[in-house]
């Protein structure tokens, strides 16, 4: 249910986008996502690719119940987030994106066909030896990994441990707002914090509740982009921490207030990251 909010300054463009988006999403879908082993030959340049991985633990750890079914951590927001994002990319940028996202394991032989891969909700992620090796090779070849939707110190530590096996000796850096990734298409002055739609309430802030995340969470109020760079200073991995960018894409049609306050910001970040990955 969309929370009510008496915002006076709604923008006409936002309304139009909302209506258009809702119509598109309500319309007949062509292909929800491609089969893991099949590539439909189209002229699209970019295939949004969600990485399937394993997580440790049981219920509420490796998987959780939501909206009537059990979800694995890797499939959070998938595929609706990618489908919505693909549409927005096609509408707003010069990138041609397949409307059907891919899902692949890191060990997939054709992983190299997706120079940009996306991982979500990595707080309980564990990678096998073969996955670690594959990801290391992928990144060394110029592949770009975007990790999203993990909050707090414990989940950060989980990612940090996994990536330490992939790229031993590398150090995470926090990207300043002056970094080109914040300015490739849109000028982003502040890194936005996007909560899951269920925790977005007018007047209660943007930080998700700590009980939803692995503890100790520590301070979750400051979103950031942290990154690994290669020896030439190029970004290899970015982690949007303490924010759920993909949820802003997934829930764009859940209400005007959410769209205006979170989806638009999610798209700005997403578009900048995509164009950055395609040009650096």
């Amino acid at each position: 249910m969309m929370p009510a909010h008496p915002t006076a300054g709604r923008k006409l463009t936002a309304r139009l986008l909302l209506v258009v988006g809702a119509l598109i999403l309500a319309g007949p879908t062509v292909a929800q996502f491609a089969d893991e082993d099949g590539i439909t030959q189209t002229n699209d340049e970019l295939w949004l690719t969600r990485i399937r991985y394993d997580s440790v633990g049981g219920p509420r750890q490796a998987y959780y119940h939501y909206d009537g079914r059990w979800w694995e951590r890797w499939e959070t927001d998938f595929p609706q987030a990618e489908q919505n994002f693909a549409k927005r990319l096609n509408e707003l940028t010069a990138v041609t994106v397949s409307p059907a996202p891919l899902r692949r394991r890191l060990t997939h032989p054709a992983l190299g066909d997706s120079p940009l891969i996306f991982m979500s909700d990595v707080g309980y992620m564990q990678l096998s030896k073969s996955e670690i090796d594959a990801l290391r090779t992928y990144l060394a070849n110029g592949g770009f990994l975007w990790v999203d939707d993990f909050w707090g110190d414990a989940e950060w530590a989980s990612l940090e441990r996994a990536m330490a096996d992939v790229l031993p000796g590398k150090r995470w850096i926090t990207l300043p707002i002056e970094h080109p990734i914040f300015h490739t298409v849109f000028d982003i002055e502040v890194m936005p914090q996007i909560p899951a739609r269920d925790y977005a309430r007018w007047g209660r802030g943007t930080t998700e509740p700590s009980f939803e995340h692995r503890r100790p969470t520590g301070n979750m109020s400051t979103p950031s982009i942290r990154a690994y760079t290669d020896d030439d200073g190029r970004l290899m991995v970015i982690a949007t921490h303490n924010t759920d960018i993909a949820d802003g894409w997934e829930r764009e049609s859940y209400g005007e207030w959410y769209f205006e306050n979170f989806s638009t910001k999610s798209y700005r970040v997403g578009i900048n990251v995509i164009v950055y990955a395609l040009s650096h």
């Binding site: 340049e45 970019l46 940028t93 010069a94 990138v95 041609t96 120079p115 110029g142 490739t184 298409v185 030439d232 190029r234 995509i274 164009v275 990955a277 395609l278 040009s279 650096h280």
Partner: peptide, 27 residues
């Protein structure tokens, strides 16, 4: 248009100090 060929041409030439690549990309 932003596309992978653009990125990887830039990456290939970045390894060559004698090639100075100036790019103009419609985003």
């Amino acid at each position: 248009e932003p596309r992978w060929e653009f990125k990887f041409i830039r990456r290939a030439t970045a390894e060559d100090d004698d090639i100075e690549l100036v790019t103009w990309l419609r985003t």
